[in-house]
Amino acid sequence: MEAAPDIHILRLLAGFGLLLIPVGLSLLVRLGIIGQLMISVGRMTGQLFLMSIVLIYLFRWDNPLINIAWVIVMIFFACLSAMVNSKLSFRSFFVPVFLAYFVGAGFVLLFFNKIIVNHENIFTARLLVVIGGMLLGNSLNSAIIGISHYYESIRKDNKRYLYLLSLGATQNEALLPFFRDAMLAALKPFMANMATMGLVSLPGMMTGQILGGAAPETAIKYQIAILLAIFTAVTISVSLSIYFTSRRAFNAYGVLKKDFFKS
């Protein structure tokens, strides 16, 4: 199968012409999104353009150490953007979440490249950087949902926690129901998404590969494997993030510290 034809830069500009429709609607009913839209589209274009330059060089050098360093940079920025959008205090959470992600996504990424794809060079840019990016982009939000859910529900449902402690639960026993709820909050939407995969949406990775000239049967195998990998990465990172933060989140009396949240 032949690869997708390149898009001429002028024709891509024509693509921006499509935006006249949402802009027109915004003017008509005063949605007030034009300024924000311009910023978002500008950032998207600029970031992707930069990314393509980075990828060109990463592929050209294809140096394992540089590739690994780049994955770490991606984890760093993924954590950064996810933390900004959560209610958790940056200072208390950034390092544990980063470490949890490093271990969780790192393990799954290596497993994917070595065991599933069985490539002779598991640190090659095409696998490490691209699959790593897929894994991070699709799992970090679920993971942050899980971690936030855990701490916010302990804070909100404080009476339930205290009740369980007063019923003789050890701290871990009293926290277990909250851990369960947090895991469900992180994993359930993803499970629902998996169940309708292919029926209501054609997943991005598969579409990309088919456009890139891969046979559909190869593309679906990658797609299945990446979904399993993302699901597992979320599971590991949420569990580890909670494990790494739990020790410091409570005082010796078992009470959740207030400074674990943004103001």
Binding site: D157, R160, Y163, L164, S166, L167, G168, T170, E173, P177
Partner: peptide, 27 residues
């Protein structure tokens, strides 16, 4: 023993909850 108002004590079947409480190491 501590009982408070408007308390959400857990999920799942009521009897399962009691059994879990009895499984706490201290109980």
């Amino acid at each position: 023993a501590y009982v408070s108002q408007e308390m959400q004590i857990g999920r799942g079947k009521a009897e399962t909850f009691i059994k879990e409480v009895f499984k706490f190491r201290n109980n």
